[in-house]
């Protein structure tokens, strides 16, 4: 069958020329507005780490141990990042998918890659802002001073941990199809996260089996690395190994998510 008008010709008839850049920008702007107005993500990713720093400072009393202080700071940073991945990203992603927001978006000239990338860019913006505030609080409370090595290693660990948390969120929404279940599991994971960071009970007091199990979790890997970043002289081969471990987690979470994630509701 011949077609007197091909798509491009009718495109000229009906609309101006289409460039993809404005579409991508529009997505980033829209997700950015939604991110700023979403109270839940901000609450968990900012308020929780600040609370941890404050409690840590109070409990240190008048004889703060430098090691404990840095560990508290590392836990605070880590909790903020994982909360962001679970509540700032995964829960909102699952809710929007359930509502059919992405299904409607995919009716317009936009690809799933553009949606995913714009979401991640916005989340990364949030991570940078949230981490900056937490680091400023750490600097203020613990009178920390940062030199080049701290900043370099810190950015590296931040980048890798940030990606793990975001793809953990994406993986969660890949494995679980309903927003209610994602929210419930995210809450459980956050509780497990605080446990495995030694927030409720110091790791040294855990039974050996659970301690070894927690040692392999991404949460623990990143806490020890953040701790090592703060004490840059202690950064060693084990930390590079932990970094590789986190990268491996990122690859696994991202691989499963990119292959099996569904943007449309059940």
């Amino acid at each position: 069958m011949t077609h007197p008008y091909r798509a491009k010709e009718v495109s000229k008839l009906n609309s101006p020329s289409i460039s993809r850049a404005p579409g991508f920008t529009a997505l980033i702007r829209a997700f950015g507005i939604a991110y700023v107005r979403s109270f839940r993500g901000t609450l968990f990713s900012l308020a929780l780490p600040l609370l941890i720093i404050f409690i840590g400072e109070l409990s240190a009393g008048s004889h703060p141990s430098n090691l404990d202080s840095w560990m508290t700071a590392a836990i605070a940073l880590n909790t903020g990042l994982f909360s962001q991945g679970l509540f700032g990203y995964a829960v909102d992603l699952a809710h929007d998918r359930d509502l059919g927001v992405y299904r409607r978006l995919l009716c317009s000239p936009v690809s799933t890659w553009e949606i995913l990338l714009s979401q991640l860019i916005v989340q990364w913006g949030g991570i940078v802002l949230q981490t900056t505030v937490v680091i400023l609080a750490i600097t203020e409370f613990y009178h920390a001073s940062w030199v080049g090595i701290h900043v370099g290693l810190g950015l590296l660990v931040l980048f890798v941990t940030g990606n793990v948390t975001l793809f953990l969120g994406q993986w969660l929404c890949t494995m679980i199809r309903t927003a209610k279940t994602v929210t419930a599991v995210a809450r459980l994971l956050l509780l497990g996260l605080l446990f495995s960071e030694g927030f409720f009970l110091k790791m040294s007091q855990w039974p050996t089996f659970f301690r070894h199990l927690a040692d392999m979790m991404p949460v623990h890997l990143s806490v020890t690395m953040f701790d090592a970043v703060a004490n840059a002289s202690r950064w060693g081969m084990n930390d590079w190994r932990d970094l590789l471990g986190l990268l491996a987690y990122t690859v696994v979470f991202a691989g499963i998510s990119l292959k099996f994630f569904r943007w449309t509701p059940v």
């Binding site: 993809r20 579409g23 317009s108």
Partner: peptide, 9 residues
């Protein structure tokens, strides 16, 4: 505005 952007206008 979002959907205008997606359609390049």
């Amino acid at each position: 505005r979002l959907y205008q952007g997606l359609h390049g206008s």
